[in-house]
């Protein structure tokens, strides 16, 4: 039997009728049209599906959609404000931290969660925060440099 799910996605209050066994990733991509978050492994090991739930980076492939009832979800689409990319997105572009782009939405969300909590992360903190986002292409160095360029000394 379908259930009603109410949630906020990227500052928009939405509701949708879904079967209880659907994941947040399925609902975002297939019901609500937010195709930014990707499925890599579907099993928690790659981070391509990372979105923020109430500000925390979570794997939407392992989150039951009904578990985010009443919560606030931010996907990579939600980072664009007034047509302008978020500083994290801009830094990824400027540093060449994107090749095929499949891991990018997840990596960007992990970086965003880190910087919201810690405006001046060390290299080690950046590496740890992004260790759950596998990238087949870049070799990570440029991703780490992109995020490092946003660290603001206090």
């Amino acid at each position: 039997m379908k259930r009603r799910l109410e949630l906020t996605v990227n500052d928009e209050c939405l509701d949708v009728e879904i079967e209880p066994h659907r994941t947040l990733l399925e609902v975002l991509r297939e019901e609500l049209g937010f195709t930014g978050a990707k499925e890599g492994c579907g099993l928690g090991a790659c981070g391509a599906c990372t979105v923020l739930v109430d500000g925390a980076p979570v794997l939407s492939c392992l989150t039951l959609a009904l578990e985010v009832q009443g919560k606030t979800v931010t996907t990579v689409e939600g980072l664009v404000k007034n047509g302008q990319p978020d500083p994290v997105q801009k830094a990824f572009v400027d540093h060449g931290a994107i090749q095929c782009g499949f891991c990018t939405p997840g990596s960007v969300m992990s970086a965003k969660a880190l910087l919201e909590k810690n405006s001046n992360p060390s290299g080690q903190e950046i590496r740890e925060a992004l260790a759950g986002n596998l990238c087949r292409c870049t070799g990570y160095q440029k991703i780490i440099e992109a995020v490092g360029s946003l660290a603001k000394p206090r």
Binding site: M1, R3, E19, P20, H21, R22, T23, L25, E26, R29, E30, E39, C41, G42, L43, C61, L64, L66, E67, Q69
Partner: peptide, 12 residues
């Protein structure tokens, strides 16, 4: 997409 089997859900 790797999908879950059909299951019901409750959150008391």
């Amino acid at each position: 997409m790797m999908r879950l089997p059909k299951m019901d859900y409750a959150a008391p």
